Amino acid sequence: MPRSLHGGRHELGQNFLTHRPTLGRILTLVRQTPGSILELGAGDGALTRGLAGLGRPLTALEIDEHRARRLQAALPTVTVRAADALRHPLDADVVVGNIPFHLTTPILRRLLASRTWHHAVLLTQWEVARKRAGIGGGTMLTAQLAPWFEFGLEGRVPSWGFAPQPAVDGGLLTISRREDPLVAASDRRRYEAFVGAAFTARGSGLPAIIARAASTSPSRARAALHAAGAAGCRLPRELRAQHWAGLWRELGRAR
């Protein structure tokens, strides 16, 4: 196949999914969602063919113009675009794809800043999927996003399930936009700043950390943790989405 204008496989970060159980799992997850579908990084269409079989409006993005042209010829019922996932509008109900590992962070940032989609099923590096899903403790970024999004880990994909084989395993990450956010959208920036302060504040014990982050007293922070159902937590990474939202409500007067 001719070289793309955007570079070869290494420049494009293309590791095509060949692991059939994962292809089937992705289709099952997408089947459980409603509406139109946007696939990021369609490649040679291993996943696109299954998505097309769902009988829903489907747009497939592929940055390699030669692969995009071949895929369009093979799947005439699918809208195939030779386009960059970092630039094309995320204008579908469901976003799905095997994300180039080196572009995981910018694609996730763009996705989570968009207000158009409702569900996402993404194949990323294992550690990224694990962290976003809060396995082993929450991260600051996940805690900042949790009032508006729900994250799930749907499986680990061995590195040999890709061709060519990458250096690390993949992880199947699901993201759903909450129909009823736990924190008002108008509070988002202040809430994110509060969570950021909590993850970076010093203190002996969680009440002291929350007190410093919220500029309040340790006794009030302790009472807020109890009211939020987080009295048994010792560190910010142990707090769940409902805990953070409860703290935000309880400490409103202190703010």
Rank of each mutant, 00 (worst) to 15 (best):
P2Y: 04
P2M: 04
S4P: 07
L5H: 02
L5D: 08
E11H: 12
T18K: 13
R20I: 09
L23A: 04
T28M: 13
L29M: 04
I37E: 06
L38A: 10
A46Y: 15
G53E: 04
P57R: 13
T59F: 12
D64I: 06
Q72G: 01
A74M: 04
L75G: 00
T77M: 10
V80W: 00
V80K: 02
R81Q: 12
A83H: 13
A83E: 15
V96G: 09
F101L: 11
F101T: 02
T104H: 13
T104Y: 08
P106Y: 14
R110F: 13
L111D: 11
L112Y: 12
R115N: 07
L123D: 09
M140F: 09
T142V: 06
T142W: 13
T142F: 15
Q144W: 07
F151A: 02
E154V: 03
R156P: 00
R156A: 03
F162L: 05
P166V: 08
A167H: 14
A167Q: 10
D169G: 04
G171L: 03
L173H: 02
R178L: 10
R178C: 06
R178I: 05
R178Y: 00
E179M: 13
A185C: 05
D187Q: 08
A193M: 13
G196M: 15
F199V: 01
T200G: 04
A211Q: 05
R212H: 14
R212I: 01
S215N: 10
S217P: 00
S219D: 10
R222M: 11
A224D: 00
A228Q: 09
A228V: 01
P236R: 09
G246T: 00
W248G: 01
R249I: 01
R249K: 13
